[in-house]
Amino acid sequence: MARGVTHSASVSSGTVVAKRPASPLMRDIARAARHPMFAAGFVVFASVLVLAIFADAIAPHSYREIDLKRALSPPGGEFIFGTDQYGRCLYSRVIYGTRIALRVGLIVVTIQSAIGVSLGLIAGYFGGVLDRVICFVTDVTWALPPLVFAMAIVMAMGPSLDNVIIAIAVVSWAQMARVVRSKTQSVKSLPFVEAARALGRSDAGIILKHILPNVLSPIIVLATLSLPSAILSTTALSFLGLGSQPPAPDWGVMLNEGINYIEIAPWISIFPGIAIVWTVLGFNLLGVGLRDVLDPRLKT
């Protein structure tokens, strides 16, 4: 009997979802699209995305073709952004750099969200000793200067972009865990969760089917707001020579190489930085817009 009730309940809830014209989340995203900052952020993000996808078609030169005869040419003419100390086209290198920045940002945020969301859900849902332990670990992680600890981790694992991605993700999940935990605590006591428990759903089922969908909007907002700092941190470590290694067209690496020629070829140090600001600005605008619409009370 109980089994039959559970079954029909899940079937009917499934059909309701299917018939609904738009989920609340989609409605919110449609609302966000009319937010000026979100719209501006989307345009910026779209421009970066187009550059990344069609880099092969847009970039006029190879990003690693060395020609010392044309080294350190100033911007203008054939090379819009000028060339670097090896005569490589800076404009092409900046364009290919979008691929690294987007990839790095997405992977860092995915890993840190996976850690933060699962720990937050577990702590908030089960409470008790598990909650206390997770909270303490979160507090310790929160109390550490992220960039400094990421540097220590990279030293232990060896300098490479992959290790930087892991290091940044491992030190920056605490805020996500805190927010998800407190949201889970408030959702947990709502009647529909009680109902699901009364119907004999497993804890894992309740967390995934009933709690997670209801804490999704703060997760989306926080993840979007974390993208800019993920990109800033990874370029900072690449700039310090701990991340991407030459000849990768990583903006941090380009700035690192440029600083040696700052007096005779300042353009090497300028254009990659503008690319970082543009990309990070796009994600910041998207994040602020999403926050205003989805979760106005969430402050970072």
């Binding site: 800019p228 900072a236 700052i262 140090s269 970082i276 600001v277 910041n284 602020v288």
Partner: peptide, 17 residues
């Protein structure tokens, strides 16, 4: 919003230039 998108190390480089 623009200012918080600027990496401090690049701002340093710009100021040097």
């Amino acid at each position: 919003t623009v200012l918080r998108s600027v990496p401090s190390f690049w701002l340093g480089i710009l100021l040097i230039v």
